[in-house]
């Protein structure tokens, strides 16, 4: 299935590291402190092979921010964070003495924004480098167990491929890891690859 060469992966990694850098800049402007985001790995797999091991998910509950986007290719992008870690991060970003219980009331909207910043930064980096325009829906936030999330990803039969990015986020010494999952149909994956090829063709 997977027509991605090492060079394709390298190009995508560079795009997403630029996206991560932009997201870190936006977040640092909100929190007034250094924010570090890195994308240590990228993989493209068949959605039936996706499981809690590939996503490094454990038992707890996960917050999932999703946006549907369309353009030269269509995909659903889902950003996953462990809910308790995400709440701590949102708490740090709000810079107050709020308890976790108090934070819960702001969780929905604040997580939408955090996810929106990271997703938009990645999409805009893609748009800049591969020279295309994407449109996107507003972000949506749900909280579910790893099993529920994976079940939904697997049953999405129109989109047999998933691109999984592991994301490390550090704000004011608090560290968390998340996953950015792109659900892609075969034609969307082909279209993404052809854009990467076009880009590589210009520089080699």
């Amino acid at each position: 299935m997977n027509n991605l060469s090492d060079l394709h992966i390298d190009a995508l990694a560079e795009v997403f590291s630029i996206g991560a850098g932009r997201a870190a800049l936006s977040l640092s402007e909100i929190v007034g402190d250094e924010v570090r985001i890195s994308v240590p790995s990228i993989q493209v797999i068949n959605s039936k092979d996706i499981n809690s091991a590939t996503l490094l998910l454990n038992d707890g509950r996960f917050g999932a921010v999703s946006q549907y986007f369309s353009g030269p290719f269509n995909a659903e992008a889902v950003l996953l964070f462990a809910e308790d870690q995400a709440l701590k991060i949102v708490g740090d970003m709000m810079g107050s003495q709020m308890s976790i219980e108090e934070l819960a009331e702001f969780e929905h909207e604040a997580m939408c924004e955090l996810g929106n910043i990271i997703l938009n930064a990645c999409l805009s980096a893609m748009a800049d480098i591969f020279e295309f325009t994407l449109e996107s829906s507003l972000p949506d936030y749900t909280v579910a167990s790893a099993d529920e999330i994976l079940h939904r990803l697997k049953t999405n039969s129109n989109q047999p491929y998933v691109m999984v990015l592991h994301i490390d986020l550090t704000i004011e010494k608090r560290h968390t890891a998340g996953n950015l999952v792109f659900l892609l149909s075969s034609s969307s994956l082909d279209s993404l690859i052809s854009h990467v090829d076009q880009f590589l063709g210009k520089i080699s």
């Binding site: 949102v90 604040a110 924004e113």
Partner: peptide, 9 residues
């Protein structure tokens, strides 16, 4: 791309 600005932040 659409943007959300939350009350919380």
């Amino acid at each position: 791309l659409p943007v959300v600005l939350s009350t919380a932040l």
